[in-house]
Amino acid sequence: MSSDQKPALGPGWYSAPDLPGALRYWDGEEWTEEYEVKKDDPEPVTSWVIAKGILLGAVLIAFAVWVLAVLWEIAS
């Protein structure tokens, strides 16, 4: 669709005919000068990602406790 082509739909954001990868606002009669960059949908946070974070946190806490115990033994 070239920039002079008119969508058959009402006002809204549509793929910019003159700028691939962007959106351009159609006011119902003509293209405005408003552009937006298309945003990719973020990856959803899965339970596996949450579980890995919890596991990593637990391992780091256990390691910190172990280090403190070793340092306490050395200092005693």
Rank of each mutant, 00 (worst) to 15 (best):
M1I: 00
M1H: 01
S2D: 04
S2F: 02
D4S: 02
Q5A: 01
Q5N: 01
Q5T: 00
K6N: 06
A8D: 06
A8L: 05
A8V: 03
L9R: 12
L9D: 14
L9T: 15
L9M: 11
P11M: 01
P11V: 01
G12N: 10
W13L: 03
W13P: 00
W13D: 01
Y14T: 02
S15K: 10
L19S: 13
L19T: 15
L19K: 13
P20T: 15
P20W: 09
G21H: 12
G21F: 09
G21C: 12
G21M: 12
A22S: 11
A22N: 13
L23R: 03
L23G: 01
R24M: 04
R24C: 04
R24S: 04
Y25E: 04
Y25C: 02
Y25A: 03
W26R: 00
D27I: 10
D27S: 15
D27F: 07
G28F: 08
G28K: 07
G28V: 12
E29C: 00
W31Q: 07
T32F: 00
E33V: 11
E33P: 02
E34H: 13
E34G: 05
Y35S: 07
Y35D: 07
E36R: 10
K38R: 14
K39S: 14
K39H: 13
D41G: 07
P42E: 12
P42C: 08
E43H: 04
E43V: 12
P44Q: 03
P44C: 03
P44R: 05
V45I: 15
T46P: 13
T46Y: 10
S47F: 06
S47Y: 06
S47D: 15
W48K: 08
W48A: 10
W48M: 06
V49S: 11
V49H: 12
V49I: 14
I50V: 15
I50C: 08
I50H: 05
A51L: 05
G53V: 04
G53R: 09
G53E: 14
L56C: 06
G57I: 05
G57D: 08
G57Y: 10
V59R: 03
V59D: 05
V59L: 15
I61R: 04
I61S: 12
A62Y: 12
A62R: 09
F63W: 10
W66S: 14
V67H: 05
L68N: 11
L68W: 10
L68Y: 07
A69K: 04
A69R: 08
A69W: 07
L71R: 14
E73Y: 03
E73K: 04
E73T: 03
I74W: 07
I74M: 06
A75V: 09
A75E: 04
A75D: 04
S76Q: 05
